[in-house]
């Protein structure tokens, strides 16, 4: 049995760049190394105050970005909502834990408790949309988004569902940034932090010309060496019928730190030498689901048919884009390879 092809119908973002916009492709907001927060839209345009009162920042972002992605895709009700998040609603978790430290385990606010679980975001989107379909959340550190995407893609391929909204959400609060800096995940010299709220609508059957591109490959490897990665990429290109020279570039997780430079320089030399390196974290910053922003950026390149200058590391000017790779090896153990065509 041949698996169904999976297409991307729409994608949207709220991040450190202009909200719900692709302005970053031409004039990105310049990120400073260190701590950065998302640019918020005017939520009153999208959410009634009585509804918004119980939502933390990340939940508001999720609601708005999901609505925008569905509108762009022309889908009113997805069959499934699958979310990847490294940390969930950290702000609510902090409020809840602060209150617990201050007042003990009694008299804690139920709203913060409910919102401090990782799956709050995906389920809140379902409640708001009245979507009774499949709903799942993956919290797998830096491959949370790809895990969610893989789940949705497999279900579309098997025709269990027709459409799915796949999301990647993470917020970084000032205090959590401090903690992540202490453990060495964020805040290395030269590195800019960011936040992600990305929603992507995928589906199985191409309806007219609405699909932007297809997800031609998605593979996750655990602790691969360069030769395994090289072979995974070659097999992916071969089965998708894509020649290496047709790949516009490969998005890599260079985030300005020395660690990421060494990591991804090694990866390029060892496994991805034939592809032009592209960066996205200098535009969107670093967080657990930064790869959701890489996927979104790739979809934008496919929609535009060109890779913008702001993403190119070595060469100036735009470059045609018929297909594009995303390789996420941020934690040096889990490797996710995605091919769009």
């Amino acid at each position: 049995m041949t698996a169904n092809r999976v297409y991307v119908y729409g994608a949207s973002q709220l991040s450190v760049q202009q909200p719900l916009s692709e302005d970053w492709m031409k004039e990105p907001i310049v990120l400073e190394a260190g701590y950065n927060r998302s640019v918020e839209p005017d939520y009153r345009q999208y959410i009634q105050p009585l509804e918004a009162r119980r939502m933390g920042k990340l939940l508001k972002r999720a609601v708005v970005v999901a609505g925008d992605a569905l509108t762009r895709a022309g889908v009113t009700m997805p069959d499934a909502i699958v979310t990847g998040t490294g940390l969930g609603c950290v702000e609510s978790t902090e409020f809840f834990l602060d209150a617990m430290c201050r007042e003990g385990e009694s008299l804690l606010k139920p709203t913060y408790f409910m919102q401090s679980t990782h799956n709050t975001i995906s389920s809140s989107l379902a409640i708001r949309l009245r979507c009774h379909g499949y709903n799942a959340t993956y919290a797998h550190k830096s491959i949370s988004f790809e895990s969610a995407l893989k789940d949705a893609v497999m279900q579309v391929e098997e025709e269990s569902i027709g459409t799915a909204m796949v999301c990647g959400f993470d917020e970084v609060t000032p205090s959590y940034y401090g903690l992540l800096k202490k453990i060495g995940f964020l805040g290395r010299e030269g590195e800019a932090s960011g936040e992600s709220a990305v929603a992507v609508v995928i589906g199985g059957k191409q309806e007219g010309e609405k699909a932007i591109c297809s997800i031609a490959g998605l593979k996750m490897l655990y602790c691969p060496d360069y030769s395994q990665m090289r072979s995974a990429v070659s097999q992916m290109l071969e089965s998708a019928g894509v020649k290496a020279e047709e790949v516009g570039g490969v998005l890599l997780g260079y985030n300005g730190s020395e660690r990421s430079r060494v990591l991804y320089d090694g990866l390029r030399k060892g496994a991805l030498g034939e592809f032009e390196p592209l960066h996205f974290k200098s535009i969107f910053g670093e967080c657990y689901t930064a790869s959701a922003l890489a996927f979104y950026a790739s979809v934008c390149c496919m929609a535009a048919g060109a890779i913008p200058e702001v993403m190119r590391m070595d060469v100036r000017g735009t470059k045609p884009c018929k297909s594009i790779l995303v390789v996420n090896f941020d934690d040096e153990k889990n490797c996710a390879i995605t091919l769009l065509k």
Partner: peptide, 17 residues
């Protein structure tokens, strides 16, 4: 105010606190 069941929980906490 059209409050709901979660608000009721918040009000219970308010009364005790």
């Amino acid at each position: 105010l059209a409050l709901d069941s979660i608000d009721a929980l918040e009000l219970i906490v308010l009364m005790e606190k």
